[in-house]
Every structure is written in C-alpha cells, then in structure tokens.
C-alpha cells in the first residue's frame, strides 16, 4: 500500500516503453545504468552501509526507484567520476564518501554495538540527524566532518535517483529525445509519445 503523502500524476506512464526510439548510444548508457557492471571501489560492507543510508535519507523513493544506488555509485567511483573536490573541501568526493561510510560504521559500533545497517530505523534516523547538522564526533570524524560527508553523499544519491528511468516515469519526464525531438508546441500540446496529460493518465 502506498504510504506516501503524494502520488504520481502519471501512474500509467513508462518512459522505458519508448527506449527503442532512442539513439543507440543513449540506449547503451541507460542499459549500463540499469544493469551496472560490478565496480571495484566499494567493499560489501560499504555497500550495505550505503544502502541503509540511502533508505534513511530517501525512504520516500523506495518502491519507486529501481536502480541499484550502490552498484551505480560504485560504477561511477570505479570510472573515476568523483575525483573533483566539493565546494569548501580539499578532499575528493571519492575520499569523502569512502571515509564517511567507514566513520559511520565506527560510530554506530562504538555507540550502539552494531553496524549501521543492522540498527533499527529509529536509531538510524537519530544518528543521521546528528551527523547532518554537525562536524561529528572529533575522535571519529576528524579527517572528514560528518556534515561534509552528508552533503557530498546526498548530492550523489540525488543525481542517481533522478537518473533513474522509473523516477522519470513518476514525474512525467519525457527522457531522451533523439533522434525524434519535439514537434507539438503550443499550450496543452504534447507529442503523443510523452506522458499523457493528467486527466488522460489517471487510472
């Protein structure tokens, strides 16, 4: 049962049903995202921690999101896509994320005797709330402050969530549009392959 306070305007729209209309390069990009190859940076423990963290930060998108966040992030890390430094930092996004995941586990074990991904939902939420609003316990978060880790990892998670075709369908985004482009212009006019306007799309 859908517990979300708000529902999609486009319950019957599936952007992937049009994938054969996309150019081959974009099809391949999306295929690799939906079926990511194994990365080599995140350890199995880090993946479990990241998965638990994503559920804590974005419980909202569970059941709607179809991509494996951990697999896609690992793929991006492996492809050296996270070399840049976030604003205000002198460490790479990769270093910040890897260290942060380790520090999360350290603190969870020190304080609660369990790894983060084994904690109950309430405890996870309390920990995340504490970490997001502060530098973190200096004995653990010295190299990377917890708020820097959270702003960095949240930005990466958001990018992956909104690169998920299932989420595109939920928000009614037309997605890739080459080679066909858009032709129907003017108020209330849309191309027939796009999501149908609300009234026509509701079940």
């Amino acid at each position: 049962m859908d517990k979300h306070p708000k529902r999609t305007h486009y319950p019957t729209y599936d952007v992937m049903s049009e994938k054969n209309e996309w150019d081959p390069v974009t099809q391949q990009v999306l295929f690799s995202r939906i079926h990511p190859s194994e990365g080599s940076i995140l350890t199995p423990d880090m993946k479990r921690t990241l998965q638990a963290l994503a559920k804590t930060l974005f419980p909202s998108h569970l059941g709607e999101q179809t991509l494996s966040l951990t697999m896609v992030l690992d793929q991006r890390l492996t492809a050296k896509k996270l070399k840049a430094f976030p604003k205000g930092a002198n460490l790479s996004k990769e270093t910040i994320i890897l260290k942060g995941l380790t520090f999360m586990e350290q603190e969870a074990i020190t304080e609660h005797g369990k790894t983060f991904y084994l904690l109950d939902e309430k405890t996870r939420n309390e920990l995340v709330r504490k970490w997001r609003g502060s530098d973190g316990d200096p004995s653990i978060w010295a190299e990377v402050h917890s708020d820097l880790f959270f702003s960095t990892v949240s930005a990466e998670i958001v990018k992956i969530i909104y690169s998920d075709p299932a989420i595109w369908s939920d928000i009614g985004y037309g997605g890739p549009a080459f080679p066909r482009g858009y032709y129907a212009f003017g108020p209330h006019q849309f191309d027939e392959w796009e999501a149908k306007p609300h009234g026509e799309n509701l079940v």
Partner: peptide, 12 residues
C-alpha cells in the same frame, strides 16, 4: 527524502 519527492512530483 519526502520533501524532494513531493517537489519533484510537480516537475511538469
């Protein structure tokens, strides 16, 4: 989380 989701559902 839900704040982001609620905003983005109105994307169109």
């Amino acid at each position: 989380g839900e704040n982001m989701r609620m905003r983005m559902l109105d994307y169109n």
